[in-house]
Amino acid sequence: MLRDITIGQYYSADSVIHRLDPRTKLIGTFCFIVILFLIKGVYGLLIAGLLLLLIVKATKIPLWYIVRGQKSIYILLMFTVVLNMLMVKGDVLVKIGFITITREGIYTAVFMAMRLILLVIGCSLMTLTTTPLQLTDGLERLLRPLKKIKVPVHDISMMMSIALRFIPILMEETDKIMKAQSARGADFESGSILQRAKALIPVLVPLVISAFRRADELATAMEARCYRGDEGRTRMKELKYQKRDHIAKLVILVGCAGLYMTRFLPSITQTFYAITGLFS
């Protein structure tokens, strides 16, 4: 039941995207997020989606695997769509009781939904193709300038990498405890919301206890290996930009510029008005 959640999980495969320097991927993802908010029309988002699809193809990760992992986002997505559809004022298309659906409402809903989906898939592509270790390494390296103003960059990235590393462990642990309690007749799948919330106590108590135990063990293990923070710490694998990273950066630059240019495309609203105009 918990196996389906793939947020923050690494998917091992041998692809160009996997081999890219984590810094390149971080920069690329950041640019992608920024540009998603700069794009004005649905056309632009469609093109961005197409580009994203090409990148997905390049990662060799099956698309259904990525889509399945976003299940938890769907509820949020539904909220956005429904709220936008009902709340945005404009030309009324349908009116049933107090529910009014406007052209602008539908347009905004579709636009927001697309933006959200692209955003989530774009971000998960990074975590899917980058191991947590690489990711935090990259982040630490990128944020290094902030050290000058006394930001504890190393500590932050270490905390992040531990947190990421613990996601699958805690997930597995949850699965195990749920099974153990099911074996004792616990029922997580039926009853009212209150009953279900109560049914989670036998899972949460052991889970929290085990998380503390693990944290304790980890701290001891780190100390036993003389971990003392950032000072004087060297790396086994220094990050180095390769030729492919420079090419990737060029692609990111061109892609972002191109997507930004879509702002100047003829607005889709006109096309949209023309289509919905046929039905009203």
Binding site: I177, A180, Q181, R184, P202, P206, S210
Partner: peptide, 11 residues
Amino acid sequence: LVFQYPEHQLF
């Protein structure tokens, strides 16, 4: 069914 390390399920 008694799992491995069953004491971890006490709550």
